[in-house]
Design a protein around this nucleic acid. Sequence first.
RNA 1: GUGGAUGUAGCUCAGAUGGUUAGAGCACCAGAUUGUGGCUCUGGGGGUCGUGGGUUCAAAUCCCAUCUUCCACCCCA
Length: 419
Amino acid sequence: MPSSINRPRGTIDVLPGEVEKWQYVEESFRRICREYGYAEIRTPVFEHTELFDRGVGDTTDIIEKEMYTFLDRSERSLSLRPEGTAPIARAYVEDKLFSGPQPVKVYYQGPMFRYDRPQAGRYRQFHQLGVEVFGSAAPAIDAEVVAMAMDFCWRFGLKLDLHINSVGCGVCRPVMRDKLCASLKTRLEDLCGDCRIRLDKNPLRILDCKVKRCREMAEETAAGLNFLCPECADHFRETLGYLDALNVAYIVDPCLVRGLDYYTRTAFEIMAPGVGAQRSVGGGGRYDGLVEMFGGPPTSGIGYAMGLERFLLVMQEQGLTVPDGGRLDVYLVTAEKDLEGRALTLLQELRAKGICADKDYTGRSMKAQLKQAGKSGAPYVVILGSDELSKGKVALRDMLAGSQTEVPLADLPAQFLKK
RNA sequence: GUGGAUGUAGCUCAGAUGGUUAGAGCACCAGAUUGUGGCUCUGGGGGUCGUGGGUUCAAAUCCCAUCUUCCACCCCA
């Protein structure tokens, strides 16, 4: 007996019954993207490792401990993409999208890979829905991107909080970081162990430390700094103004700093209120230096990504369902074995007209076929029997009402098409 | 990567202190006379008790390891 093989840790099989929800969310995302003027882009699932080292930042957790990196047969170091923005910025440069009309608005959906410790709502292969806009530094596009993300969630009836902040630019952020460090270093003994390390590696992260003491201390210090340069301050104020105009409620959260190095100015996160550590459903922000870092012209950019698994999880928590599609229109039952051939051709005729139809293929009794029909969810059953057939008719059974009529074979497709 | 829980049929779970062929509900399949579903009744299939070692006359039940899932942290989607 060969031993069974399981799926790798942190991965899931999306089975019939569940996959319909995925499809519904994915299709809804496509629709809203089209409405907002985005075109789809597809990039490889793996890239040169260096792309992420440079783009995401080689001191981030994602790069330091979460990448699926491997050597291919030619000894190239490749990595499964841990996120979508760097590859798309790469494509923007490599495929010279900067030479076309600007801004370039693209969306993507697909799997991402991170070697994390799995938990509910957190997987090693997970799926993101995201958008990126290149070539506009206008606060209005910040607002549109954020508003679109919220619009998408609202369409499902999701109740989520929008946290937003400005993390400054290449000019004012380093100044702020230095001041924060200097200030915190004087109180080193008050910081938790993690934060002492963070102080050297990524001091901004102290702002969202779980240890209350650190957090309070950092908040105090940060609030006192009021660090944004006039340009960044204006940009942030205008962005918030547009959000107000769009009736998008937000929480300005001075402690919101995102884990990827490339963010500038606007940073935001969409959080599910309440339970669980994985409350972040999506997030994004501006990344004005990224394209240049990849050898492209100075180009501003902004985008966000949402986690499909988390989106679904929150939907479930909030008791939201999706309309169930994928049902059959009709199930075909044969009363006698020798009608099998006739059943097959009838089935094909119906399908050719776009009617979703199926039958049994395990040689069940008629009674059992009806039972299967019931389970299939098909609202109608067509019963093929020699009595009716001799009159050129079939029996059409309404499974909800439990009633049955005889219908001429020729009229059959019309029965379903009008519904 | 750190700390802590968990693992018995497809699913939800019973199986006190180790002891004959491991159970239930649901699901699945088949029947309940002559061509008809959803209710009911009857019967059936299905588990090397996560996996691998060990202790023991004997282990689902004790010990060790390993894997999975889950919780918290790190971090993030």
